[in-house]
Amino acid sequence: MATIQEIKIDLEEKSMRTLLSAGTNKDCKIVAEGDSWFSYPVVKDIVDHLRQMGYAIKRHSKPGDTLENMVYGTDFGIATQVQRANNYGPISLKETLRSVKNLKPKFVLFSAGGNDVVGSELAQYLNHKRSGLPLFRENFFRDSVNGHIKSAITAFLEQVWQVDSGIHVIMHGYDYAIPSGLQYELAGIRFAGPWVLPAFARKAITTRTEQNRIIRQLVDIFNELLISLSNTYPNFHHIDLRGRFPNEAQWHNEIHLRKEGFEQVAKLFHQKMVEILNYNPVA
């Protein structure tokens, strides 16, 4: 029986052959940029499921990637001899735009912001419980979402539309993460995480009720931004996942769904594309 990794490699190769084929329906072509929801090593992720449906997808997503890196670029080098730092620029964005220009897809799928909201950045949005201050620094978080997060998403959209103004960009807003302390493991080896529970523990926010309330506020505010952008830009579309995966058993760890959950999200992307096109391109 083929392993998940072998299946992923096979889907990758088939998808590239289809993308490069002159006879491929343009409406089936997709460029995907994002984080681990589009590129998850352990189970079949959203992109894998869409490929199995028949879509041809060029994937630029990377596990753990941040919105800031996808749009602006955070990779750097330091030349100690001359005491100078060098930022390498928006490498990921350039690669994505190159694919958009060369492949001429109908859709760009975007999965970003999760690592900026409930990943390693979470602790900065919390006050220590013993401080007597509100546990959630709501105004600070709203300023971040409506400031640099909104600016980065808008910059990504405008750059894509400079290449092709007719492309539809579809972006999901995640569901409420589970502060379970579960990490990303493969064959018993820990590779990453946990992400959420340690941030709460550092701030002495230890009850699940308090944790869940803050997570709901974080994810709701992020989704409010995406809804606002979808009302502003006709070719930007938001997929609302809130409340779809309420059970801990549906999650592979704190911030990643099991393959069945990713399959459900893939079907929602498919439904949105069918709705936009007014027909099923992979029927």
Rank of each mutant, 00 (worst) to 15 (best):
K267W: 11
L67T: 07
I30Q: 01
F107D: 02
E33K: 03
Y55P: 08
F262Y: 14
T18Q: 15
V145S: 03
W37I: 00
V71N: 10
K62A: 14
H168F: 00
L11Y: 10
R213P: 04
G166K: 03
K259G: 10
L229G: 13
F110P: 02
P281G: 12
T74R: 12
Q162L: 01
M171D: 09
M16W: 13
V71F: 05
K267G: 05
G89C: 09
F110N: 08
P41S: 12
K44S: 04
Q5F: 09
F38E: 07
N146M: 15
K29P: 03
D48M: 12
V219Q: 01
F236M: 05
H270A: 04
I221T: 14
D75F: 14
H172A: 09
S131N: 09
G181T: 08
L126A: 04
A266L: 12
L257A: 07
L157T: 05
M273W: 06
K203F: 02
Y72G: 12
S21M: 03
L20C: 14
L97I: 14
G193T: 01
I4V: 09
T96A: 07
N102T: 08
Q52W: 11
G261K: 06
G193V: 06
E248N: 01
P63C: 15
D116K: 02
Y174F: 06
K104R: 15
L197S: 03
T154W: 04
E95T: 14
G77C: 05
N235T: 13
H49D: 08
S131F: 11
G181V: 04
T80G: 13
A201C: 11
T66D: 04
I46M: 04
A85N: 10
V274E: 11
T3G: 06
D220R: 13
E6L: 12
C28N: 06
Q159H: 06
F200T: 05
Q217K: 08
G64V: 09
Y88E: 15
L97D: 01
T209G: 07
I91Y: 03
F156S: 01
S180P: 07
D10G: 12
L157Q: 01
G261F: 01
Y174N: 00
E263A: 15
R130N: 13
T96S: 13
G34E: 09
H148K: 12
A56L: 10
L11H: 08
V282P: 09
G64D: 08
G132P: 13
A249N: 14
F269L: 00
R137W: 13
T24A: 02
S21V: 10
K267T: 14
P234W: 00
S165M: 00
S61W: 06
R98Y: 10
R216D: 03
T209S: 04
A32C: 05
L67P: 07
K101T: 05
V219P: 02
A187P: 10
R130E: 11
Q217M: 10
